[in-house]
């Protein structure tokens, strides 16, 4: 600082460190923000189970089918609610799509055609805590008959 004061005093705070901090905060929030929960329907209130293993923090497995089931047993998928009959059709349709894409993927990689009776896709079931078992069971058996073998039942780790 030269120490010389002009007749007009100018206060110029140094904003650069402040800007640095703000950018750091923005970076933090950008990284932490979670867009991957698009499939998680907020209408579904999951039950609580302490010993449920935490989901992998990495990128979500693309090979999965998320089934949200509300308290009336309706299947919520892509913003639509399906009653039992249309839910069965929808699961059948999804299974066909997944099967054909698995076939194509195997062909592309030169692998033998995957087993007709089993699909590698994991069915993630997010079921409301007030759903009756019969409604859930119906969907699970339908998935099994369509060839799904891997299931994942979702629950909250803690009350919240």
């Amino acid at each position: 600082m030269s120490g010389s004061v002009s007749s007009e005093i100018k206060a110029e705070p140094n904003l650069t460190p402040l800007l640095d901090v703000v950018f750091q905060l923005i970076t933090f929030f950008m990284l932490v923000i979670n867009f991957s929960n698009d499939n998680n329907d907020q209408r579904v209130r999951l039950p609580v189970a302490a010993s449920a293993s935490p989901t992998e923090s990495g990128p979500a497995d693309p090979d999965r089918l998320v089934l949200n089931i509300d308290s009336d047993g309706k299947l919520l998928m892509n913003g639509e609610a399906f009653d039992t009959e249309s839910a069965m059709k929808e699961i059948h349709l999804q299974a066909q799509l997944l099967r054909s894409s698995a076939d194509r993927a195997a062909k592309r990689k030169g692998l033998p055609k995957p087993d007709e009776n089993s699909l590698p896709t994991t069915v993630v079931i997010r079921c409301d805590k007030n759903t009756h078992y019969s409604q859930l069971y119906r969907l699970i058996t339908k998935c099994q008959s369509e060839g799904f073998r891997k299931f994942s039942l979702k629950a909250m780790n803690a009350e919240g």
Partner: peptide, 29 residues
């Protein structure tokens, strides 16, 4: 700085930590 504050406000307002969901993986034949 103004713009950065705007961005920061957006991220703070849209930030809601997802409740920690667990899962039970099972092979159901």
């Amino acid at each position: 700085l103004d713009m950065a504050f705007q961005l920061l406000t957006f991220f703070i307002l849209t930030y809601h930590p997802a409740p920690s969901e667990g899962q039970f993986g099972m092979n159901l034949l």
